[in-house]
Nucleic acid binder design. Structure first.
Lengths: 145, 145
DNA sequence: CAGTTGTTTTGATTTACTCAAAACAACTAT
DNA sequence: ATAGTTGTTTTGAGTAAATCAAAACAACTG
């Protein structure tokens, strides 16, 4: 078995989700566990260092499998390619910088549940509420005044 | 001058926004005033009836001009092409059907302002909060149980 | 009504992503 | 251990949405 504790953990997560354990899957999950909010190209480029034979299409396939298994969350902010993060299970939201498009997590929203009820449902059965905060990150506030 | 009250109104709106009044712009704005949440292709196809010589690229150009003039709002729900609506100036939100991707407006959110403050700002200067409610529209609830 | 500025057309190009067939690798059960 | 089955990855092509650029054209200015 693997002698690397983190790799073992990733393997366990894959197995528990009913997925076969493959090198590309472990690598992609490892990349996302370290740094979130990456697009497919960025994941591909990070995976390419340890696994140079992995194709971009494989990365797309792995990401799709991980998302549908619930191990990875996909977000699609306006103006960006789809981004992936390994933080799942909590219903957290995102702040996106209007200038540099960087994304930060928002742990929760004050007064959360009662406030996120749409006022006119019109027969619509709401399952989730997704909030995106748009503004300027601290870097871009000083750099682009 | 035009003898059509609605067309006149659209022309006034364009002029007030500092835009030149052209047939494609009046037509696009007219289409969006009637039915919202259309993608560029849908706008193009509706504009093509009265103005068959208008190109799809012109529609993209018109939409971009209208959006940056503040006459039209662009939304980009995950999994859909960009959608455009003429309802601007109010900060309303949207409900998107997970099944048929149809979009409905949400006039406001109960308890609105105080609730939409992210709990950890981390130096991020929030300008707007955008909420997307995901669920099933009334049609798809009965059709796809 | 001529000139200037900005818009639209025409046509090519890009980006992000998807599809499909064949080669290959992981898990299963012997 | 190993053969078989199932599912994954590679390879290569293809698509949709949107963007870019140059030339033709139209709207507003004076």
């Amino acid at each position: 078995m693997g002698r690397d504790a983190q790799a073992d953990d990733l393997e366990v997560r894959l197995r528990l989700a009913g997925l076969k354990v493959t090198a590309p899957r472990v690598a992609v999950l490892g990349v996302l566990a370290t740094s979130g909010h990456l697009d497919a190209e960025a994941v591909f480029s990070q995976v390419s260092t340890p696994l140079p034979k992995t194709s971009l299409q494989a990365v797309y396939g792995v990401l799709a499998a991980l998302v549908s298994a619930g191990l990875v969350r996909k977000i699609e902010p306006a103006g960006s390619a789809a981004l992936y993060e390994a933080r799942v299970g909590d219903n957290h939201h995102h702040m996106v910088c209007l200038n540099c498009k960087s994304v930060e997590d928002v742990d929760c929203v004050v007064g959360e549940s009662p406030c996120l009820t749409p006022s006119n449902m019109n027969g619509f059965a709401v399952q989730t509420a997704e909030i995106t905060f748009w503004g300027l990150c601290s870097q871009c506030q000083t750099a682009v005044p």
